[in-house]
Amino acid sequence: MQVFWHQVLSGLATGGIYASIALALVMIYQATHHINFAQGELAMFSTYIAWMMLDAGFPYWAAFFLTLVFSFIAGVLIERIVVRPVENAPVLTVVIVFVGLLVITNSLAGWIFSYTIKSFPSPFPSNAWYASSYLSAHEIGMIAVTFGVLLLVFLFFRFTPLGLAMRGAAQNPVSSRLVGIRVGWMLALGWGLAGTVGAVAGMMAAPIVYLDPNMMSGILLYGFAAALLGGIDNPWGAAAGGFIVGVLENLAGAYVVGTEIKLTVALVLIVGVLVVRPSGLFGRVLVTRV
């Protein structure tokens, strides 16, 4: 039984990473109906930036927050420069541009930082008082950080005028313009926020999966699964989906299929959700008008 609870709790910890990635995906999806295939790679690149600062001797939390600032700016710039020109293009064009972005980010990281695997520190000392046999200090810290991020994002969207304007712009761009909201900037801001949330996920994941240019591909897949399971138009559903998927992954790994074909579990989950319940557990059912 102890093993079981251990699996569940550490599933929640990794689930936090999936939840963050899913939240980032949903933020962009809600505003533009694009799925950002490069979300994982952008998070990976942010993590390298953090590594670079740590390597240069910055204290952890300074590097952490500077990385968030970097990721925010990078997200805004990518939206303004790369995504804007194809905003209303057909699906295939948008998908290809995102794949291009994925490839460029990945190769840029390999080019600058090399493909050798690096270790990345955890800010939570392994002998901290909150560490236990159920959860390591880093896992506890990860859960805390994820919940912190979710709470901040929630408060931002729920209670600030800018958050409200971003929700408005995502829902009804035309009306938003008519009340004076600069919709283009709201989308860019959304990308910035998504980049920031993704960066948190990257920095929390790196101590576990180690740092290399391909570190996020599996995580991104689970992020997709989480977003779809929770409902791709519902940020809180997506976050919940992240935790569910994290626990499912661990239990399936421990009791059903082993850890070798984890990614296939994600694939089955993605296809399964899309086919059986495309709106996810908490999403709205949308009917397309012909």
């Binding site: 005028p161 409200l164 304007a165 929700r167 408005g168 829902q171 009804n172 035309v174 009306s175 938003s176 008519l178 009340v179 004076g180 909201i181």
Partner: peptide, 26 residues
């Protein structure tokens, strides 16, 4: 210049009050 568009342009997922708050956004 305030424009009440055809189809009313409601932010249908937001509450009435949030709609009004967006009206005063600027």
């Amino acid at each position: 210049i305030a424009h009440v568009p055809d189809g009313r342009g409601t932010f249908s997922m937001l509450t009435v009050e949030e709609n009004l708050r967006l009206g005063a956004y600027t």
